[in-house]
Write a protein that binds this DNA or RNA. Structure first.
Lengths: 153, 153
DNA sequence: CTAGGAACTTCAAGTGCTTTAAGTCAAAGC
DNA sequence: GCTTTGACTTAAAGCACTTGAAGTTCCTAG
């Protein structure tokens, strides 16, 4: 499969960013057996992730994002459904993940807008501009509806 | 202000539906002081939400949706009761939230790129295009390198 | 070569809900 | 009148992380 010659290695921080799971969660998953123990640097004892670990973690990240419980994920992994040879389902799962990320990105745009409006609102209040405050209050309300509606999808 | 016409009252279930927060969360928020204690039915002891409670809950629901911590929400609601004098504090809380959201947005951009590369990679493998697969493998590593160099938050 | 700081390590405690257990109350059916 | 149904109550436990403390180790610069 991976016909690449150079097996790149990753720190926990890099693995965290690429999978979207915080480093603390990576350690946690390893500690409770959701993923296999990761090899360590000879002198440092620091975790060293290879491409295979990354692939496995992407899988787990996808499963976690669908709301699968930790014990279910552990069972899934234990059943060997998650080896590097499980390539068939990879694309579907990754595509689902891509969709989720797109939605999440959209959500964050809305949230940032909402927070910005509230900041503007308090600035208006601070400077005694009641008219502008009312206007922004209304905008916040409208956005809140949109936020809620989008979240429920 | 409050016209004594029809001050509608709501059960916890209705409040939950209207705010989008589960009833258990409403009780939880009340128990830890994020919202003021809700009045109770005389005989039943059940919570009875009025319009004011609902308004407050709507704001809290929006803040929660932006990922604001419970203690920040508590501070925010407490400030809100103080009026215009608290504007500076509100802006600080919201600005911190805006920064968190900006960081999150950045992370998601990276994750989306990584997932897309992975998808393309598996498509290439599937169609036997080893050359393209190698290229994409290299891109994934390049992304990690970029992460290493520009990990300046 | 050595000093400083960032990044890593483990372990324990904290957070933010969510679920469960056990019980109360109000209306509907027998 | 009694009982069952169902929504509500609290307190406590559970879950999936998350954060903090205290102690290495790596890297960069002087």
């Amino acid at each position: 499969m991976t016909s690449s010659t150079t097996q790149r290695e990753y720190t926990i921080k890099e693995a965290a960013t690429l999978t979207g799971l915080p480093a603390s969660t990576l350690r946690y998953y390893e500690s409770i057996g959701v993923i296999a123990p990761v090899s360590r640097g000879a002198s440092s004892g620091h975790r060293v992730y290879d491409e295979g670990d990354l692939d496995q973690l992407m899988w787990v990240a996808c499963l976690a994002a669908t709301g699968m419980s930790v014990s279910d994920m552990r069972a899934y992994v234990a059943n060997g459904a998650l080896g590097p040879e499980a390539a068939r389902g990879q694309v579907e799962l990754l595509s689902a993940q891509a969709r989720r990320l797109a939605e999440e990105a959209e959500q964050i745009v809305l949230r940032r807008r909402y927070v910005q409006i509230k900041i503007d609102y308090w600035h208006a209040v601070e400077s005694g501009d009641g008219e502008r405050a009312d206007l922004l209050s209304g905008q916040a309300r409208a956005l809140a509806d949109e936020l809620r509606g989008a979240a429920k999808r």
